[in-house]
Amino acid sequence: MANCHDQFVDFNSTISLTSERKSKLKKSRKNLRDRVRDDFKENHPDEIKPQFGSQGSSEMRTGINPIVRVIDEEGEEKRLTKYDTDDGVYFVGPLEKRKAVQTYHNWIWDAVNGYTSIEPVDKNTCVRTLFSDGHHIDQPIYFMDEDNDEHPWLAHRKKGWILSDPRDFYQWFNDEAAKNEQLRRVVKYLKAWCDYVNFDDSSKKMPSGFILTIWATDNFRESERDDISLKNTLEAIYDNLTIHFQCLRPTTPIGEDVMDGYSYKQYFMEKLKSFLESAKQAINETNQKDACYKWQKHFGARFSCSTAKDEDEGAKSYSNPPVVTNNAKSA
Score class of each variant (00 low, 15 high):
N43M: 11
D10E: 15
L32T: 05
I15K: 00
T14M: 07
D10S: 14
V9P: 07
D38L: 10
R21T: 06
R33Q: 09
T18G: 09
D46I: 05
F40V: 04
L17I: 00
F40Y: 13
R35V: 00
I15V: 14
D38T: 13
L17S: 02
D34V: 01
H44W: 03
L32V: 08
R29T: 11
I15P: 05
D39S: 10
K26A: 15
D10L: 08
E20R: 04
D38A: 15
F40L: 05
E42H: 07
S28L: 06
R29V: 08
E42P: 04
R37C: 12
P45E: 14
T14F: 05
Q7G: 01
T18K: 06
D39A: 03
F40S: 06
L25V: 13
D38K: 13
I15W: 02
S28A: 08
R21L: 13
H44G: 03
S19L: 07
N31C: 09
V36Q: 00
R37N: 14
K27H: 07
V36Y: 01
R33E: 12
K22M: 15
D6Y: 05
S28G: 00
R21Y: 14
R29G: 10
K22D: 15
I15G: 00
D34C: 06
L17K: 02
D10C: 01
D10F: 04
R33I: 07
N12E: 15
D39T: 05
D10G: 04
E42V: 09
R33H: 02
R33N: 06
R29C: 09
N12G: 13
V9Q: 14
K26R: 09
L25N: 12
L32H: 03
R35Q: 01
N31E: 14
L32D: 04
D6G: 01
E20Q: 12
L25S: 09
F11Y: 08
D39I: 00
K22V: 13
L25F: 08
D10Y: 11
L25C: 09
S19D: 12
S28R: 02
